[in-house]
Write a protein that binds this DNA or RNA. Sequence first.
DNA 1: GTCTATAGCTGGATAGAC
DNA 2: GTCTATCCAGCTATAGAC
Lengths: 214, 214
Amino acid sequence: MINTPSKTDWREGRRHSAHEAIIDAAWSLVIEEGLAGLSLRDLAGRAGITAPTVYAYFDSKNAIYDAMFGRAATEFEVKMAEPYECDDPRELLVAIANRFSLFCTSSPTRYQLLFQRTLPGFEPSPESFAPAVRALAGVRELLVLNGITEERHCDIWTALIIGLVDQQISNDPGGDRWTRLIDESVNMFIAHCQPKRGSRKPGSRPARTKGIST
Amino acid sequence: MINTPSKTDWREGRRHSAHEAIIDAAWSLVIEEGLAGLSLRDLAGRAGITAPTVYAYFDSKNAIYDAMFGRAATEFEVKMAEPYECDDPRELLVAIANRFSLFCTSSPTRYQLLFQRTLPGFEPSPESFAPAVRALAGVRELLVLNGITEERHCDIWTALIIGLVDQQISNDPGGDRWTRLIDESVNMFIAHCQPKRGSRKPGSRPARTKGIST
DNA sequence: GTCTATAGCTGGATAGAC
DNA sequence: GTCTATCCAGCTATAGAC
């Protein structure tokens, strides 16, 4: 259903199909009412249609969540793929962590849908999930640039950044009590993963890549 | 309501009041159906009573969540306060992190209620929250034992451990991909917070305590 | 595609007899 | 305290006219 936009030009002609307008309304609604507060009535009202009309575009409520997930994942990929202004590998790591943090804190609801699995019975489709996977592969590349290739170090990285973001959103929403610790945390992380680094060029560290792939 | 057990012996005589039995049923239900899947009908059925009878013990559904939160917080306090078998401050940190991790992963639903705020419109009462605060104060003490007193270091600690637990529960439920990294992560953390420590006795490091209290 | 109307269900919460 | 019966609100989803 999502992949069959009925041949009308929903990309060239109007730039904004009814399909997209519904997802617009859905996002504006869940940002106010929470992820679980999405009802088809309210959604339709906000989109300027009636509830049954929604079913002309989506098969079910979960299909709407899936489209919302897909948009969020695409936004994630686009945001993370923007060019960086620095070259130093360490600063790149700080930059990507800050960018990730900003992406998450700027919309906790989006963060909740993308990275926490709180909706009962909802699983994103592979198509909606794909952009997020690509974005995370980009993160992995930056770690490699810093000579960090071991699986467990990558896992510590993701845990560290997610932990900072999670604490920020949960315990100091709107503030910066945890996000301001990103720079220091990256230093801690790098110092651990590159203990013997002096002034050598990064990326030249021979590290065996053991462990499973993600 | 919780603090007025109507004078009957709900601690000596039967060891298990009806009040407690309902919370038992509530927990067994949400563990199967998820936190949001708690309905008064199902709950009553599981407790061997009818739905209206629940209102003889709790004023509302949120009051039930609050009692569930209170029990979880007490379990948390009890578990974290158990004596440790080691004396070395670093090993104490590893032990407490592992204990916390085990507590969370052994019941993701309980973790979700206690540490993630996912229930719309529910806020635990101060009385239910108190045990969790006391338990976290114990964690702080262990950090001080390691000479870690600065606010930002404590915040990095909580973020790091929460991040490991969160990734474990979200991306490898039932496994140990992230929890097995606790020991190494504690090393990373301590190396950062105690950079100049040689063989000096821990706890004697003079550190100014700046920052707000929690 | 969009509407009105409504089915069918589940939820929290209450009334009142016993 | 516990029950039966019920209210009322909300939800997803469908039927069928236009």
